[in-house]
Design a protein around this nucleic acid. Structure first.
Lengths: 203, 203, 203, 203
DNA sequence: CATGAATGAGGATTCATTCAT
DNA sequence: GATGAATGAATCCTCATTCAT
């Protein structure tokens, strides 16, 4: 159908805009994203952008949504069999960390933003802001599972999850800012991080 | 000497500019710092600012350089007698967290910076960058003390310190970004954070 | 005939565009009329509009041309029996004023226009421009009637009519611009206006 | 003094901006006034304009204020001895009308505007909007004077004044729109207008 | 030493209009 | 006939920076 074709084409262009926006953010930070720069990168006039998005903030939202999905995927990623819940959480957090480190500046730009649009995806602590709770919720569920299996101690799962999450965020961010890029060093830090966490919650 | 006098005066003015800039950053965030606003606050013309700093980014650099010391002070602050090393660490970290939360935007601006001059103060993980290791070193020393007193388990003190530090940084940063401002909520999160850490290192 | 059919259809669409434009003007003022808004309202694409009108100003012209007749109708409206000519004039002017106030922005757009096509309908003073003199002529005739019946003084009827007309136009326009919308206030002003006029022409 | 000189220079430029703005308005209407056009006309960059005015609306306000003063002056203009209040009012209104006709488009642009900034000067009917009531107040005072001297009938002075004013506004506006430019015709219309008014209020 | 004046570049949007399809 | 896509020009406004004075 003609209409389908058009929709597809439309989506293609939308995607190319999002991609360009993401690249700008990754390279120069969220603050550097301007419609003009974006349009130039995509090869359109600034006005043309508005045919695909209502305003800048819609673009930002789309970029984040799109991009955050990727990061979240890493934590949702199923894996056949784990010997313990700890192993499962380790595996998922590791995935998340790697995924974040592969998109350093993008991750940072996104996580630092105080725009409502974005906080709705990134908020961990403030549930008033959060809309999609997937990431945190998954962690909470896993902890509860671990508690049921008598693997973890009986602290409030939500608090544990939040704490683990902020701690992990801190680790990732410092690694990015301080340019810890050597695999070995990264792994050492991550391992140390996990050890602290899990000796903290293990029974 | 004439020259000395001039230098002194020059430094005085530079300092007043830095102070004003810091206040603006703290009040409205780094993005809100403009030369015009700054000049107005200092009582000079925008052009005059350029007699003391080459450009805006020099000012930002100076502000940040100038001020991390304040934040660090909070952790050095001596306090007479503690019943345990844990108590001492809790006390100092709490001080640090409070100090950071009292200077939210400023703290964030400082900690996010990737300038070498600044990383020299703020780097936790990358010892190549760090020059003055005070903050981290204090924590390492405390952990070692706790280990000697058989209070803490025998993991590598430096790694523990780094992990605690990045975790704490993560907590602070998320509280700032997500505007967790209620005292009660803050304390709950901080307590949860401490519990995880200390059950992780306690013997 | 095919051609006739086509023409008819064409006119139908043109009319729907004009109608939509008029509604926009009436609702938000002439300045708010944009092709996009118009197209949306008619259910066409902006580009389609250009198949029926060369450009925006043609549309505006058409809207205005189309519609003054409506306003004029209000003054022609017959009414059975009046006790005096004054009463009749009052009745008709009141009708006219109300009709104008019900189409505020539209009325204003029409009356302000300096297009020849439109002045042909709206001109009061300049008889060179006026073609259809209905509105003014009616007033002139009424005044003459009043003079014959010894109700009005013997000034030149045409001048009186023009003066009454411009005065009424002034009243309406100021009420629109200054948003005098309360019925009571409107009536008070209109009554005061009539009193001045009629004590000016009564014998 | 240096400062005085600067202030004077500053005022000169401000005035030149106002003058240019006024010319644009007179030529193409208020809607055509843009900062860019204005800057070009004055020979400055758009940004420079903002050194003299905070924003566009301040400019518009200044233009009106400045210009409306001129028009108002005409009505305030003292004249030695009048034989009657009627004569005085006639004289002042005549001045006002002439002054308006000398600045046709400017007058129209100003009087048609619905911006609060401007209505504050131009509002006649709606005293909520009006701030500087000079023009209307003068007329009210004159009417009261005429009533005291038993020259005018005892209708409510404020209503009379408003009615006279809106009527006069209507006359002026129609003369402008319909391009009644011949002196003789203008005078005839004005005279007819005055006759209606004064036979309406004379005792 | 200080500043007022000036600017170019850039910020987000909106608009009338065109043109290939 | 109709439209989606595209654009250039315009809107107001802000900013860091420069320079003559």
């Amino acid at each position: 159908m003609n209409k389908n074709l058009r929709n597809a084409k439309n989506k293609l262009i939308k995607d190319s805009i999002i991609k360009a926006a993401r690249e700008i953010i990754e390279k120069d930070g969220l603050a550097a994203l301007s419609i003009r720069k974006l349009a130039k990168k995509v090869g359109y006039s600034p006005a043309a952008i508005y045919q695909y998005f209502d305003n800048k903030s819609e673009i930002v939202k789309a970029v984040i949504e799109e991009g955050y999905k990727d990061i979240i995927k890493s934590i949702v990623a199923e894996h056949s069999n784990f010997n313990s819940v700890e192993e499962e959480i380790r595996f998922k957090l590791k995935n998340y960390i790697n995924s974040a480190l592969e998109n350093k500046y993008y991750y940072q730009a996104v996580m630092i933003s105080e725009e409502k649009n974005i906080l709705q995806f990134t908020a961990i602590l403030n549930s008033d802001l959060r809309q999609e709770q997937s990431a945190l919720q998954i962690l909470i569920d896993l902890i509860k599972k671990g508690q049921k299996q008598d693997e973890f101690s009986d602290k409030k799962a939500e608090n544990l999850a939040k704490t683990i999450w902020t701690a992990t965020y801190g680790l990732i961010t410092r690694m990015i800012i301080e340019r810890v890029e050597e695999q070995k060093k990264q792994n050492e830090l991550i391992e140390s991080h996990f050890q602290l966490i899990f000796s903290g919650i293990r029974k």
